[in-house]
Design a protein around this nucleic acid. Structure first.
Lengths: 303, 303
DNA sequence: TAAAAATACTCCATAGGTATTTTAT
DNA sequence: ATAAAATACCTATGGAGTATTTTTA
Protein backbone atom coordinates (compact mmCIF):
# COMPACT_ATOMS: atom_id res chain seq x y z
CA UNK A 1 0.00 0.00 0.00
CA UNK A 2 1.14 3.51 -0.74
CA UNK A 3 0.06 6.99 0.23
CA UNK A 4 -1.30 7.26 -3.30
CA UNK A 5 -4.00 4.79 -2.35
CA UNK A 6 -4.92 6.88 0.67
CA UNK A 7 -4.93 10.13 -1.30
CA UNK A 8 -7.10 8.61 -3.99
CA UNK A 9 -9.46 7.01 -1.50
CA UNK A 10 -9.82 10.29 0.33
CA UNK A 11 -10.73 12.07 -2.90
CA UNK A 12 -13.32 9.47 -3.88
CA UNK A 13 -14.74 9.28 -0.37
CA UNK A 14 -15.12 13.04 -0.24
CA UNK A 15 -16.49 13.45 -3.74
CA UNK A 16 -18.49 10.21 -3.72
CA UNK A 17 -17.94 10.24 -7.46
CA UNK A 18 -15.05 8.58 -9.29
CA UNK A 19 -15.14 10.98 -12.20
CA UNK A 20 -15.03 14.14 -10.12
CA UNK A 21 -12.41 12.65 -7.81
CA UNK A 22 -10.26 11.75 -10.81
CA UNK A 23 -10.53 15.30 -12.12
CA UNK A 24 -9.58 16.64 -8.70
CA UNK A 25 -6.56 14.34 -8.68
CA UNK A 26 -5.65 15.26 -12.28
CA UNK A 27 -5.76 11.67 -13.43
CA UNK A 28 -8.18 9.69 -15.59
CA UNK A 29 -11.06 7.78 -14.07
CA UNK A 30 -10.02 4.18 -14.92
CA UNK A 31 -6.69 4.21 -13.04
CA UNK A 32 -8.48 5.72 -10.08
CA UNK A 33 -10.97 2.84 -10.06
CA UNK A 34 -8.07 0.42 -10.27
CA UNK A 35 -6.19 1.93 -7.36
CA UNK A 36 -9.26 1.93 -5.15
CA UNK A 37 -9.88 -1.67 -6.07
CA UNK A 38 -6.28 -2.49 -5.17
CA UNK A 39 -6.68 -0.82 -1.81
CA UNK A 40 -9.83 -2.76 -1.05
CA UNK A 41 -8.22 -6.02 -2.12
CA UNK A 42 -5.21 -5.40 0.06
CA UNK A 43 -7.31 -4.51 3.07
CA UNK A 44 -9.78 -7.28 2.33
CA UNK A 45 -12.55 -4.80 3.06
CA UNK A 46 -15.14 -3.13 0.86
CA UNK A 47 -14.75 0.60 1.42
CA UNK A 48 -17.30 1.83 -1.10
CA UNK A 49 -20.53 0.58 -2.56
CA UNK A 50 -20.72 1.64 -6.18
CA UNK A 51 -23.45 1.58 -8.66
CA UNK A 52 -23.33 3.63 -11.83
CA UNK A 53 -25.65 6.07 -10.14
CA UNK A 54 -24.36 6.31 -6.63
CA UNK A 55 -21.13 5.84 -4.73
CA UNK A 56 -21.39 5.44 -0.99
CA UNK A 57 -19.09 4.68 1.89
CA UNK A 58 -19.54 1.42 3.75
CA UNK A 59 -19.29 1.67 7.54
CA UNK A 60 -15.76 0.28 7.27
CA UNK A 61 -15.05 2.86 4.57
CA UNK A 62 -16.27 5.71 6.75
CA UNK A 63 -14.03 4.46 9.52
CA UNK A 64 -11.09 4.13 7.16
CA UNK A 65 -11.68 7.61 5.77
CA UNK A 66 -11.31 9.16 9.20
CA UNK A 67 -8.03 7.34 9.72
CA UNK A 68 -6.91 8.18 6.20
CA UNK A 69 -7.41 11.89 6.70
CA UNK A 70 -5.57 11.72 10.01
CA UNK A 71 -2.67 9.85 8.41
CA UNK A 72 -2.36 12.20 5.44
CA UNK A 73 -2.41 15.16 7.78
CA UNK A 74 0.19 13.48 9.99
CA UNK A 75 2.44 12.99 6.96
CA UNK A 76 2.28 16.69 6.17
CA UNK A 77 2.71 17.68 9.78
CA UNK A 78 5.73 15.40 10.18
CA UNK A 79 7.44 17.11 7.25
CA UNK A 80 6.73 20.58 8.54
CA UNK A 81 7.82 19.64 12.03
CA UNK A 82 11.08 18.20 10.75
CA UNK A 83 11.68 21.47 8.90
CA UNK A 84 11.10 23.37 12.11
CA UNK A 85 13.58 21.15 13.89
CA UNK A 86 16.08 21.62 11.07
CA UNK A 87 15.76 25.37 11.46
CA UNK A 88 16.19 25.11 15.20
CA UNK A 89 12.72 26.55 15.80
CA UNK A 90 11.53 23.62 17.82
CA UNK A 91 13.03 20.66 19.55
CA UNK A 92 14.19 19.28 22.83
CA UNK A 93 17.15 20.78 24.61
CA UNK A 94 18.74 19.35 27.72
CA UNK A 95 20.90 21.69 29.75
CA UNK A 96 23.25 20.83 32.59
CA UNK A 97 24.47 23.49 34.97
CA UNK A 98 26.88 23.82 37.88
CA UNK A 99 25.46 24.84 41.24
CA UNK A 100 26.91 28.33 41.25
CA UNK A 101 24.97 29.25 38.07
CA UNK A 102 21.86 27.20 38.77
CA UNK A 103 20.05 30.01 40.53
CA UNK A 104 21.09 33.00 38.43
CA UNK A 105 22.48 32.39 34.93
CA UNK A 106 20.41 29.26 34.34
CA UNK A 107 16.96 30.75 35.06
CA UNK A 108 17.84 33.84 33.00
CA UNK A 109 18.97 31.55 30.19
CA UNK A 110 15.81 29.46 30.24
CA UNK A 111 13.62 32.55 30.38
CA UNK A 112 15.41 34.01 27.37
CA UNK A 113 15.09 30.70 25.51
CA UNK A 114 11.35 30.67 26.01
CA UNK A 115 11.16 34.24 24.70
CA UNK A 116 13.31 33.70 21.66
CA UNK A 117 12.51 30.08 20.78
CA UNK A 118 8.94 29.58 22.00
CA UNK A 119 8.64 25.99 20.84
CA UNK A 120 11.77 24.74 22.52
CA UNK A 121 11.25 22.00 25.05
CA UNK A 122 13.87 22.57 27.74
CA UNK A 123 14.99 19.97 30.23
CA UNK A 124 17.15 21.28 33.04
CA UNK A 125 19.58 19.48 35.23
CA UNK A 126 20.93 21.95 37.76
CA UNK A 127 23.55 21.39 40.46
CA UNK A 128 25.63 19.13 38.24
CA UNK A 129 29.31 18.97 38.95
CA UNK A 130 31.61 19.51 36.00
CA UNK A 131 32.76 15.87 35.60
CA UNK A 132 29.17 14.66 35.63
CA UNK A 133 28.35 17.21 32.92
CA UNK A 134 31.20 16.03 30.73
CA UNK A 135 29.95 12.46 31.01
CA UNK A 136 26.35 13.53 30.41
CA UNK A 137 27.39 15.49 27.31
CA UNK A 138 29.18 12.46 25.88
CA UNK A 139 26.29 10.13 26.58
CA UNK A 140 23.86 12.56 25.00
CA UNK A 141 22.11 13.04 28.30
CA UNK A 142 22.56 16.79 28.03
CA UNK A 143 23.15 18.94 24.95
CA UNK A 144 24.66 21.99 26.63
CA UNK A 145 26.73 22.05 29.78
CA UNK A 146 27.28 25.17 31.88
CA UNK A 147 30.39 24.49 33.87
CA UNK A 148 33.76 25.81 35.00
CA UNK A 149 36.71 23.98 33.54
CA UNK A 150 40.37 24.34 32.72
CA UNK A 151 41.72 21.51 30.58
CA UNK A 152 41.00 20.63 26.96
CA UNK A 153 38.28 18.22 25.86
CA UNK A 154 38.92 17.13 22.28
CA UNK A 155 35.42 15.83 21.57
CA UNK A 156 33.69 18.89 23.03
CA UNK A 157 33.47 22.47 21.96
CA UNK A 158 33.90 24.73 24.98
CA UNK A 159 33.57 28.49 24.98
CA UNK A 160 33.79 31.03 27.79
CA UNK A 161 30.45 32.60 28.59
CA UNK A 162 31.13 35.03 31.42
CA UNK A 163 33.66 35.78 34.14
CA UNK A 164 32.41 35.86 37.71
CA UNK A 165 34.06 37.60 40.62
CA UNK A 166 35.01 35.45 43.58
CA UNK A 167 33.41 36.30 46.88
CA UNK A 168 33.42 34.84 50.33
CA UNK A 169 30.42 33.25 51.95
CA UNK A 170 30.49 33.82 55.71
CA UNK A 171 28.04 33.01 58.47
CA UNK A 172 26.02 36.07 59.58
CA UNK A 173 27.82 37.88 62.38
CA UNK A 174 31.22 36.55 61.43
CA UNK A 175 33.88 39.09 62.52
CA UNK A 176 35.33 39.28 59.01
CA UNK A 177 31.88 40.31 57.69
CA UNK A 178 32.04 43.52 59.69
CA UNK A 179 34.28 45.19 57.10
CA UNK A 180 33.37 45.92 53.49
CA UNK A 181 35.88 43.49 52.04
CA UNK A 182 37.83 40.65 53.50
CA UNK A 183 41.52 39.89 53.48
CA UNK A 184 41.82 36.15 52.79
CA UNK A 185 44.71 35.97 55.23
CA UNK A 186 42.29 36.69 58.09
CA UNK A 187 40.54 33.40 57.37
CA UNK A 188 43.65 31.27 57.74
CA UNK A 189 42.29 29.62 60.88
CA UNK A 190 38.75 29.07 59.59
CA UNK A 191 37.26 25.81 58.41
CA UNK A 192 36.63 25.91 54.67
CA UNK A 193 33.80 24.23 52.87
CA UNK A 194 34.73 23.01 49.41
CA UNK A 195 33.16 21.16 46.51
CA UNK A 196 33.57 17.44 46.08
CA UNK A 197 36.05 16.18 43.54
CA UNK A 198 39.18 17.73 45.01
CA UNK A 199 41.58 19.02 42.37
CA UNK A 200 39.19 18.08 39.55
CA UNK A 201 37.05 21.01 40.56
CA UNK A 202 38.35 24.31 39.22
CA UNK A 203 36.91 26.14 42.22
CA UNK A 204 39.02 24.00 44.54
CA UNK A 205 42.13 24.70 42.49
CA UNK A 206 41.47 28.42 42.63
CA UNK A 207 40.86 28.24 46.36
CA UNK A 208 44.16 26.46 46.93
CA UNK A 209 46.04 28.94 44.74
CA UNK A 210 44.57 32.04 46.36
CA UNK A 211 45.17 30.75 49.87
CA UNK A 212 48.69 29.78 48.91
CA UNK A 213 49.31 33.36 47.72
CA UNK A 214 47.83 34.56 51.02
CA UNK A 215 50.35 32.41 52.80
CA UNK A 216 48.37 29.49 54.13
CA UNK A 217 46.77 26.18 53.23
CA UNK A 218 43.01 26.16 53.82
CA UNK A 219 41.69 23.57 56.17
CA UNK A 220 38.85 21.80 54.35
CA UNK A 221 36.50 20.16 56.79
CA UNK A 222 33.47 19.56 54.58
CA UNK A 223 32.99 18.67 50.96
CA UNK A 224 29.62 19.14 49.31
CA UNK A 225 28.03 18.01 46.04
CA UNK A 226 25.62 20.89 45.67
CA UNK A 227 26.27 24.58 46.03
CA UNK A 228 22.95 24.92 47.82
CA UNK A 229 24.26 22.50 50.47
CA UNK A 230 27.42 24.58 50.70
CA UNK A 231 25.35 27.66 51.47
CA UNK A 232 23.38 25.74 54.07
CA UNK A 233 26.55 24.60 55.83
CA UNK A 234 27.93 28.15 55.86
CA UNK A 235 24.63 29.40 57.30
CA UNK A 236 24.92 26.73 59.98
CA UNK A 237 28.28 28.17 60.98
CA UNK A 238 30.26 25.10 59.95
CA UNK A 239 32.76 27.16 57.99
CA UNK A 240 33.40 29.70 55.27
CA UNK A 241 33.60 29.23 51.51
CA UNK A 242 35.01 30.88 48.44
CA UNK A 243 32.33 31.00 45.75
CA UNK A 244 31.58 32.64 42.40
CA UNK A 245 29.46 35.73 42.83
CA UNK A 246 26.21 34.30 41.27
CA UNK A 247 26.09 31.82 44.12
CA UNK A 248 24.68 34.70 46.19
CA UNK A 249 21.44 34.19 44.28
CA UNK A 250 20.73 31.23 46.52
CA UNK A 251 18.30 32.76 48.96
CA UNK A 252 19.40 31.14 52.20
CA UNK A 253 19.35 33.34 55.30
CA UNK A 254 22.28 33.26 57.65
CA UNK A 255 24.92 33.80 54.98
CA UNK A 256 26.74 37.06 54.37
CA UNK A 257 28.69 37.57 51.15
CA UNK A 258 31.77 39.78 51.07
CA UNK A 259 34.25 40.57 48.30
CA UNK A 260 37.94 39.86 48.66
CA UNK A 261 40.10 42.83 49.49
CA UNK A 262 42.62 41.68 46.89
CA UNK A 263 41.06 41.65 43.42
CA UNK A 264 41.36 38.34 41.59
CA UNK A 265 40.99 37.48 37.95
CA UNK A 266 37.69 35.77 38.79
CA UNK A 267 36.52 32.46 37.47
CA UNK A 268 35.01 31.71 34.10
CA UNK A 269 31.76 29.97 33.32
CA UNK A 270 31.92 27.91 30.14
CA UNK A 271 29.35 26.46 27.81
CA UNK A 272 30.22 23.03 26.45
CA UNK A 273 28.63 20.98 23.67
CA UNK A 274 29.51 17.95 21.60
CA UNK A 275 31.76 18.88 18.71
CA UNK A 276 29.93 16.54 16.34
CA UNK A 277 26.60 18.19 17.08
CA UNK A 278 27.34 20.79 14.45
CA UNK A 279 24.15 19.72 12.66
CA UNK A 280 21.98 20.76 15.56
CA UNK A 281 20.70 24.25 14.84
CA UNK A 282 18.73 24.22 18.08
CA UNK A 283 21.96 24.07 20.07
CA UNK A 284 23.42 26.81 17.87
CA UNK A 285 20.46 29.08 18.44
CA UNK A 286 20.39 28.37 22.15
CA UNK A 287 24.06 29.22 22.50
CA UNK A 288 23.51 32.49 20.65
CA UNK A 289 20.85 33.35 23.18
CA UNK A 290 23.15 32.33 26.01
CA UNK A 291 25.98 34.55 24.76
CA UNK A 292 23.67 37.55 24.62
CA UNK A 293 22.21 37.27 28.08
CA UNK A 294 25.11 35.75 29.99
CA UNK A 295 27.57 38.59 29.40
CA UNK A 296 25.43 40.83 31.61
CA UNK A 297 27.07 41.17 35.03
CA UNK A 298 25.42 39.30 37.82
CA UNK A 299 22.75 41.41 39.44
CA UNK A 300 21.27 40.33 42.77
CA UNK A 301 17.54 39.91 42.78
CA UNK A 302 15.72 43.09 43.83
CA UNK A 303 13.33 42.75 46.70
CA UNK B 1 5.98 11.26 -1.28
CA UNK B 2 4.90 7.68 -0.74
CA UNK B 3 4.81 5.25 2.14
CA UNK B 4 7.76 3.55 0.44
CA UNK B 5 9.89 6.54 1.37
CA UNK B 6 8.80 6.28 4.98
CA UNK B 7 9.36 2.52 5.12
CA UNK B 8 12.81 2.89 3.62
CA UNK B 9 13.72 5.79 5.88
CA UNK B 10 12.62 3.85 8.90
CA UNK B 11 14.81 0.91 7.91
CA UNK B 12 17.86 3.09 7.34
CA UNK B 13 17.26 5.10 10.50
CA UNK B 14 16.97 1.96 12.56
CA UNK B 15 19.91 0.14 10.98
CA UNK B 16 22.04 3.25 10.51
CA UNK B 17 23.52 1.40 7.57
CA UNK B 18 22.27 1.57 3.98
CA UNK B 19 23.51 -1.89 3.06
CA UNK B 20 21.88 -3.67 5.98
CA UNK B 21 18.69 -1.65 5.56
CA UNK B 22 18.58 -2.58 1.87
CA UNK B 23 18.97 -6.26 2.75
CA UNK B 24 16.21 -5.96 5.31
CA UNK B 25 13.98 -4.37 2.67
CA UNK B 26 14.94 -6.99 0.07
CA UNK B 27 16.17 -4.40 -2.38
CA UNK B 28 19.61 -3.36 -3.55
CA UNK B 29 21.50 -0.55 -1.89
CA UNK B 30 21.59 2.02 -4.73
CA UNK B 31 17.80 2.40 -5.11
CA UNK B 32 17.57 2.75 -1.34
CA UNK B 33 20.05 5.62 -1.40
CA UNK B 34 18.06 7.19 -4.20
CA UNK B 35 14.75 6.99 -2.39
CA UNK B 36 16.18 8.46 0.79
CA UNK B 37 17.69 11.25 -1.24
CA UNK B 38 14.30 11.88 -2.86
CA UNK B 39 12.68 12.07 0.53
CA UNK B 40 15.20 14.56 1.79
CA UNK B 41 14.86 16.67 -1.34
CA UNK B 42 11.08 16.72 -1.06
CA UNK B 43 11.18 17.67 2.60
CA UNK B 44 14.02 20.10 2.07
CA UNK B 45 15.61 18.68 5.18
CA UNK B 46 18.72 16.57 5.77
CA UNK B 47 17.58 13.53 7.72
CA UNK B 48 20.86 11.64 7.82
CA UNK B 49 24.53 12.52 7.88
CA UNK B 50 26.44 9.92 5.91
CA UNK B 51 30.04 9.19 5.55
CA UNK B 52 31.28 5.92 4.15
CA UNK B 53 31.97 4.82 7.72
CA UNK B 54 29.04 6.14 9.66
CA UNK B 55 25.40 6.99 9.11
CA UNK B 56 23.73 9.15 11.73
CA UNK B 57 20.40 10.82 12.22
CA UNK B 58 20.26 14.59 12.23
CA UNK B 59 18.03 16.12 14.94
CA UNK B 60 15.41 16.68 12.25
CA UNK B 61 15.84 13.07 11.17
CA UNK B 62 15.34 11.79 14.69
CA UNK B 63 12.19 13.85 14.91
CA UNK B 64 10.99 12.61 11.55
CA UNK B 65 11.71 9.02 12.49
CA UNK B 66 9.40 9.23 15.48
CA UNK B 67 6.61 10.58 13.29
CA UNK B 68 7.39 8.04 10.57
CA UNK B 69 7.02 5.10 12.95
CA UNK B 70 3.77 6.55 14.25
CA UNK B 71 2.43 7.01 10.72
CA UNK B 72 3.37 3.53 9.56
CA UNK B 73 1.78 2.06 12.67
CA UNK B 74 -1.32 4.19 12.07
CA UNK B 75 -1.58 2.87 8.51
CA UNK B 76 -1.56 -0.71 9.78
CA UNK B 77 -3.95 0.06 12.60
CA UNK B 78 -6.36 1.81 10.23
CA UNK B 79 -6.53 -1.29 8.06
CA UNK B 80 -7.10 -3.62 10.97
CA UNK B 81 -9.70 -1.33 12.45
CA UNK B 82 -11.57 -1.13 9.17
CA UNK B 83 -11.58 -4.93 9.06
CA UNK B 84 -13.04 -5.00 12.54
CA UNK B 85 -15.73 -2.58 11.46
CA UNK B 86 -16.42 -4.65 8.36
CA UNK B 87 -16.92 -7.70 10.56
CA UNK B 88 -19.19 -5.75 12.86
CA UNK B 89 -16.82 -6.29 15.78
CA UNK B 90 -16.41 -2.62 16.49
CA UNK B 91 -18.11 0.58 15.58
CA UNK B 92 -20.58 3.17 16.72
CA UNK B 93 -24.23 2.30 17.13
CA UNK B 94 -26.94 4.80 17.90
CA UNK B 95 -30.18 3.40 19.27
CA UNK B 96 -33.50 5.17 19.70
CA UNK B 97 -36.17 3.78 21.98
CA UNK B 98 -39.76 4.54 22.97
CA UNK B 99 -40.47 5.36 26.58
CA UNK B 100 -42.23 2.12 27.42
CA UNK B 101 -39.12 0.09 26.56
CA UNK B 102 -36.55 2.59 27.76
CA UNK B 103 -36.35 1.15 31.25
CA UNK B 104 -36.61 -2.58 30.53
CA UNK B 105 -35.85 -3.80 27.01
CA UNK B 106 -33.32 -1.08 26.27
CA UNK B 107 -31.02 -1.65 29.28
CA UNK B 108 -31.16 -5.41 28.73
CA UNK B 109 -30.28 -4.84 25.07
CA UNK B 110 -27.34 -2.57 25.84
CA UNK B 111 -26.06 -4.97 28.48
CA UNK B 112 -26.21 -7.86 26.02
CA UNK B 113 -24.48 -5.76 23.36
CA UNK B 114 -21.59 -5.03 25.69
CA UNK B 115 -21.30 -8.73 26.45
CA UNK B 116 -21.44 -9.93 22.89
CA UNK B 117 -19.75 -7.07 21.04
CA UNK B 118 -17.30 -5.64 23.56
CA UNK B 119 -15.90 -2.96 21.26
CA UNK B 120 -19.21 -1.48 20.25
CA UNK B 121 -19.68 2.16 21.10
CA UNK B 122 -23.35 2.57 21.92
CA UNK B 123 -25.20 5.87 21.95
CA UNK B 124 -28.66 5.73 23.44
CA UNK B 125 -31.57 8.04 22.92
CA UNK B 126 -34.37 6.87 25.16
CA UNK B 127 -37.88 8.28 25.47
CA UNK B 128 -38.15 8.98 21.77
CA UNK B 129 -41.62 8.99 20.28
CA UNK B 130 -42.11 6.86 17.18
CA UNK B 131 -42.33 9.74 14.64
CA UNK B 132 -39.13 11.24 16.01
CA UNK B 133 -37.43 7.87 15.65
CA UNK B 134 -38.51 7.54 12.02
CA UNK B 135 -37.06 10.96 11.26
CA UNK B 136 -33.88 10.19 13.21
CA UNK B 137 -33.45 6.92 11.32
CA UNK B 138 -33.76 8.69 7.99
CA UNK B 139 -31.34 11.42 8.95
CA UNK B 140 -28.84 8.87 10.18
CA UNK B 141 -29.13 10.17 13.70
CA UNK B 142 -29.95 6.70 14.96
CA UNK B 143 -29.16 3.31 13.40
CA UNK B 144 -31.75 1.22 15.19
CA UNK B 145 -35.16 2.38 16.41
CA UNK B 146 -37.17 0.54 19.04
CA UNK B 147 -40.73 1.66 18.54
CA UNK B 148 -44.36 0.62 18.16
CA UNK B 149 -45.82 1.17 14.73
CA UNK B 150 -48.53 0.01 12.40
CA UNK B 151 -48.12 1.35 8.86
CA UNK B 152 -45.50 0.56 6.23
CA UNK B 153 -42.28 2.50 5.79
CA UNK B 154 -40.80 1.72 2.36
CA UNK B 155 -37.29 2.98 3.11
CA UNK B 156 -37.06 1.20 6.46
CA UNK B 157 -36.86 -2.42 7.41
CA UNK B 158 -39.12 -3.09 10.38
CA UNK B 159 -39.42 -6.35 12.27
CA UNK B 160 -41.45 -7.31 15.33
CA UNK B 161 -39.30 -7.91 18.38
CA UNK B 162 -41.70 -8.82 21.13
CA UNK B 163 -45.37 -8.53 22.09
CA UNK B 164 -46.18 -6.78 25.34
CA UNK B 165 -49.35 -7.18 27.36
CA UNK B 166 -51.33 -4.07 28.01
CA UNK B 167 -51.83 -3.09 31.63
CA UNK B 168 -53.42 -0.23 33.45
CA UNK B 169 -51.49 2.30 35.49
CA UNK B 170 -53.62 3.53 38.44
CA UNK B 171 -52.82 5.82 41.35
CA UNK B 172 -52.15 3.88 44.57
CA UNK B 173 -55.42 3.33 46.48
CA UNK B 174 -57.58 3.69 43.39
CA UNK B 175 -60.79 1.64 43.93
CA UNK B 176 -60.23 -0.36 40.73
CA UNK B 177 -56.83 -1.44 42.06
CA UNK B 178 -58.48 -3.35 44.87
CA UNK B 179 -59.26 -6.27 42.58
CA UNK B 180 -56.73 -8.47 40.78
CA UNK B 181 -57.73 -7.32 37.31
CA UNK B 182 -59.67 -4.39 36.04
CA UNK B 183 -62.63 -4.17 33.73
CA UNK B 184 -61.94 -1.24 31.41
CA UNK B 185 -65.63 -0.31 31.57
CA UNK B 186 -65.20 0.66 35.25
CA UNK B 187 -62.84 3.43 34.16
CA UNK B 188 -65.38 5.13 31.84
CA UNK B 189 -65.56 8.19 34.07
CA UNK B 190 -61.84 8.51 34.75
CA UNK B 191 -59.46 11.01 33.22
CA UNK B 192 -57.01 9.26 30.88
CA UNK B 193 -53.42 10.25 30.32
CA UNK B 194 -52.21 9.62 26.78
CA UNK B 195 -49.12 10.10 24.70
CA UNK B 196 -48.68 13.13 22.50
CA UNK B 197 -49.27 12.77 18.78
CA UNK B 198 -52.88 11.70 18.89
CA UNK B 199 -53.73 9.05 16.31
CA UNK B 200 -50.14 8.86 15.10
CA UNK B 201 -49.28 7.02 18.27
CA UNK B 202 -50.18 3.35 18.13
CA UNK B 203 -50.81 3.28 21.86
CA UNK B 204 -53.45 5.98 21.46
CA UNK B 205 -55.13 4.05 18.67
CA UNK B 206 -55.21 0.93 20.79
CA UNK B 207 -56.61 2.88 23.71
CA UNK B 208 -59.43 4.29 21.58
CA UNK B 209 -60.27 0.88 20.14
CA UNK B 210 -60.34 -0.93 23.48
CA UNK B 211 -62.46 1.76 25.12
CA UNK B 212 -64.80 1.73 22.15
CA UNK B 213 -65.23 -2.03 22.56
CA UNK B 214 -65.89 -1.41 26.27
CA UNK B 215 -68.59 1.01 25.25
CA UNK B 216 -67.14 4.44 25.95
CA UNK B 217 -64.85 7.14 24.64
CA UNK B 218 -61.99 7.90 27.02
CA UNK B 219 -61.68 11.44 28.29
CA UNK B 220 -58.10 12.48 27.64
CA UNK B 221 -57.10 15.30 29.90
CA UNK B 222 -53.31 15.20 29.64
CA UNK B 223 -50.90 14.37 26.88
CA UNK B 224 -47.28 13.61 27.66
CA UNK B 225 -44.09 13.29 25.64
CA UNK B 226 -42.30 10.87 27.94
CA UNK B 227 -43.62 7.71 29.51
CA UNK B 228 -41.80 8.65 32.68
CA UNK B 229 -43.89 11.83 32.83
CA UNK B 230 -47.00 9.73 32.27
CA UNK B 231 -46.12 7.62 35.30
CA UNK B 232 -45.52 10.75 37.35
CA UNK B 233 -48.93 12.16 36.45
CA UNK B 234 -50.64 8.89 37.34
CA UNK B 235 -48.80 8.85 40.67
CA UNK B 236 -50.00 12.40 41.25
CA UNK B 237 -53.58 11.18 40.85
CA UNK B 238 -54.23 13.18 37.68
CA UNK B 239 -55.64 10.18 35.87
CA UNK B 240 -55.16 6.60 34.71
CA UNK B 241 -53.34 5.25 31.69
CA UNK B 242 -53.17 2.20 29.47
CA UNK B 243 -49.55 1.20 28.97
CA UNK B 244 -47.44 -1.71 27.71
CA UNK B 245 -46.34 -3.96 30.53
CA UNK B 246 -42.60 -3.02 30.50
CA UNK B 247 -43.60 0.48 31.49
CA UNK B 248 -43.92 -0.93 35.00
CA UNK B 249 -40.12 -0.96 35.11
CA UNK B 250 -40.24 2.78 35.75
CA UNK B 251 -39.66 2.89 39.46
CA UNK B 252 -42.03 5.64 40.49
CA UNK B 253 -43.90 5.12 43.77
CA UNK B 254 -47.58 5.90 43.90
CA UNK B 255 -48.49 3.90 40.81
CA UNK B 256 -50.23 0.51 40.90
CA UNK B 257 -50.28 -1.64 37.77
CA UNK B 258 -53.19 -4.01 37.08
CA UNK B 259 -53.95 -6.30 34.13
CA UNK B 260 -57.13 -5.93 32.14
CA UNK B 261 -59.86 -8.43 32.95
CA UNK B 262 -60.44 -8.92 29.22
CA UNK B 263 -57.31 -10.29 27.52
CA UNK B 264 -56.12 -8.29 24.55
CA UNK B 265 -53.78 -9.17 21.74
CA UNK B 266 -51.20 -6.89 23.32
CA UNK B 267 -48.99 -4.44 21.48
CA UNK B 268 -45.86 -5.14 19.52
CA UNK B 269 -42.46 -3.57 19.89
CA UNK B 270 -40.61 -3.25 16.59
CA UNK B 271 -37.03 -2.74 15.59
CA UNK B 272 -36.54 -0.47 12.61
CA UNK B 273 -33.44 0.24 10.52
CA UNK B 274 -32.66 1.85 7.19
CA UNK B 275 -33.19 -0.59 4.34
CA UNK B 276 -30.06 0.59 2.55
CA UNK B 277 -27.88 -0.12 5.58
CA UNK B 278 -27.57 -3.72 4.47
CA UNK B 279 -23.81 -3.26 4.36
CA UNK B 280 -23.60 -2.53 8.06
CA UNK B 281 -22.66 -5.75 9.82
CA UNK B 282 -22.69 -3.98 13.16
CA UNK B 283 -26.41 -3.32 12.82
CA UNK B 284 -26.92 -6.92 11.72
CA UNK B 285 -25.09 -8.28 14.70
CA UNK B 286 -26.82 -5.93 17.10
CA UNK B 287 -30.24 -6.97 15.81
CA UNK B 288 -29.33 -10.63 16.24
CA UNK B 289 -28.53 -9.90 19.86
CA UNK B 290 -31.78 -7.98 20.22
CA UNK B 291 -33.85 -10.85 18.83
CA UNK B 292 -32.33 -13.26 21.30
CA UNK B 293 -32.83 -11.23 24.43
CA UNK B 294 -36.03 -9.38 23.58
CA UNK B 295 -38.23 -12.45 23.18
CA UNK B 296 -37.89 -13.14 26.90
CA UNK B 297 -41.12 -12.07 28.63
CA UNK B 298 -40.91 -8.92 30.67
CA UNK B 299 -39.81 -9.69 34.17
CA UNK B 300 -40.15 -7.04 36.87
CA UNK B 301 -36.94 -6.17 38.67
CA UNK B 302 -36.52 -8.18 41.86
CA UNK B 303 -35.99 -6.19 44.99
C1' DT C 1 -31.12 5.75 -22.48
C1' DA C 2 -27.78 8.25 -20.43
C1' DA C 3 -24.44 8.80 -16.97
C1' DA C 4 -20.93 6.60 -14.64
C1' DA C 5 -18.11 2.78 -13.21
C1' DA C 6 -15.58 -1.27 -14.91
C1' DT C 7 -12.80 -3.62 -18.39
C1' DA C 8 -9.19 -4.07 -22.07
C1' DC C 9 -5.19 -2.57 -23.90
C1' DT C 10 -1.24 0.29 -24.52
C1' DC C 11 2.60 3.18 -23.11
C1' DC C 12 6.08 5.18 -20.50
C1' DA C 13 7.76 6.86 -16.07
C1' DT C 14 10.30 5.34 -12.57
C1' DA C 15 11.46 1.91 -8.96
C1' DG C 16 14.85 -1.29 -8.75
C1' DG C 17 18.87 -3.94 -10.50
C1' DT C 18 23.99 -4.25 -12.07
C1' DA C 19 28.41 -2.27 -12.62
C1' DT C 20 31.39 1.10 -11.24
C1' DT C 21 33.31 5.14 -8.96
C1' DT C 22 34.09 7.95 -5.02
C1' DT C 23 35.18 8.73 -0.29
C1' DA C 24 36.51 8.45 4.39
C1' DT C 25 38.94 6.00 7.76
C1' DA D 1 43.37 -0.67 1.84
C1' DT D 2 38.77 -1.35 2.41
C1' DA D 3 34.10 -0.91 3.47
C1' DA D 4 30.27 1.58 2.26
C1' DA D 5 27.70 5.21 0.03
C1' DA D 6 27.09 7.60 -4.41
C1' DT D 7 26.84 7.63 -9.40
C1' DA D 8 25.81 5.81 -14.07
C1' DC D 9 23.15 3.22 -16.71
C1' DC D 10 19.87 -0.33 -17.84
C1' DT D 11 15.59 -3.10 -17.19
C1' DA D 12 10.86 -3.98 -16.42
C1' DT D 13 7.03 -3.40 -13.27
C1' DG D 14 2.95 -1.16 -12.85
C1' DG D 15 0.62 3.40 -12.84
C1' DA D 16 -1.78 6.13 -16.00
C1' DG D 17 -3.89 7.03 -20.53
C1' DT D 18 -7.39 5.88 -24.45
C1' DA D 19 -11.07 3.25 -26.16
C1' DT D 20 -14.77 0.50 -25.07
C1' DT D 21 -18.17 -2.19 -22.54
C1' DT D 22 -21.26 -2.90 -18.77
C1' DT D 23 -24.61 -1.47 -15.52
C1' DT D 24 -28.62 0.68 -13.33
C1' DA D 25 -31.77 4.15 -12.26
Amino acid sequence: MELRHLRYFRAVAEELHFGRAARRLHIAQPPLSQQIRQLEDELGVALLTRSTRRVELTPAGADYLAHTVAILDAVDAAGHHAQQVAEGRTGRLSIGCVGSATYSVLPAFVRALRDRIPDVEVRIRGEMLAPAQLAALRSGDIDIGLLRMSGEEPDLRVEPIRTDHLILALPDGHPAAATGSVDLHNLRDEDFIAHAGGGRSVMNTVLMTLCSVAGFTPRIRHEVEETSTLATLVAAGLGVALVPEPTAAIGITGVTYRPLSTPTSGIELHAARRIDDAASPMIDRALEVLREIASAPYEPARK
